[in-house]
Computed example of a mutant assay.
Amino acid sequence: MDNFSDMYERLHNRRFTVASNSQGLSGDGTIFRYFVDGEAITSTYQGGRIRVGNQVGRVTGTDTFELLFQCVTTEGELLAGWSRGEVSQNSSGRTTLHFVWGWLSGAEGGGESSYVELVD
């Protein structure tokens, strides 16, 4: 259960923006909001080239999780993929996420991306 409470503290109801994502569609203006319920993780995202998107996944370790994601782009594309994420913290104390991901439908390939927590 400790894995779940740690992930809850670091992700639940927190917003993230893209720090780097050279191969993906999310970028400047894309905002992700994560929610944690036990081992389950969900999120919504939109902005930039993403009209609307969501993710569902599960905690896999103290600082790791896996997700399935889907979105509709501003060009009307319907895309879906998978990702494995790791949670850490940067030098200013903000939560960071690093992903390895790939497309399952609507596109081919994959890559790596990093997000950083938005702090009000």
Rank of each mutant, 00 (worst) to 15 (best):
N3W: 03
F4H: 07
S5I: 09
M7K: 02
E9G: 15
R10T: 08
L11M: 10
H12P: 06
H12C: 08
H12R: 06
N13G: 15
R14I: 10
R15I: 10
R15D: 09
A19E: 15
N21P: 07
S22I: 12
Q23I: 08
G24H: 02
L25G: 03
L25H: 05
L25C: 07
G27K: 05
D28Y: 00
D28H: 09
D28F: 05
T30D: 03
R33I: 11
F35K: 07
D37P: 03
E39K: 12
A40C: 14
I41F: 01
I41K: 01
Y45P: 03
Q46V: 04
Q46T: 07
G47M: 06
R49M: 14
G53E: 01
N54V: 09
Q55H: 08
Q55F: 01
Q55E: 14
V56R: 09
V56T: 07
V59R: 02
T60P: 07
T60S: 14
T62K: 15
T62R: 15
T62Q: 14
D63W: 09
D63M: 15
T64L: 13
T64W: 09
F65C: 02
F65R: 03
L67H: 00
L67I: 02
F69W: 10
F69A: 00
Q70C: 04
C71N: 10
T74R: 09
E75V: 08
E77D: 15
L79E: 00
L79M: 08
A80I: 03
G81L: 05
W82F: 14
W82I: 14
G85N: 04
E86Y: 05
S88R: 05
S88Q: 11
N90Q: 12
S92D: 13
S92K: 14
R94L: 15
T95M: 13
T95L: 12
L97A: 08
V100P: 02
W101S: 04
W101N: 03
W103E: 00
W103A: 04
W103P: 02
L104N: 07
S105F: 09
G106V: 03
G106F: 00
E108G: 13
G111N: 10
Y115W: 06
Y115I: 01
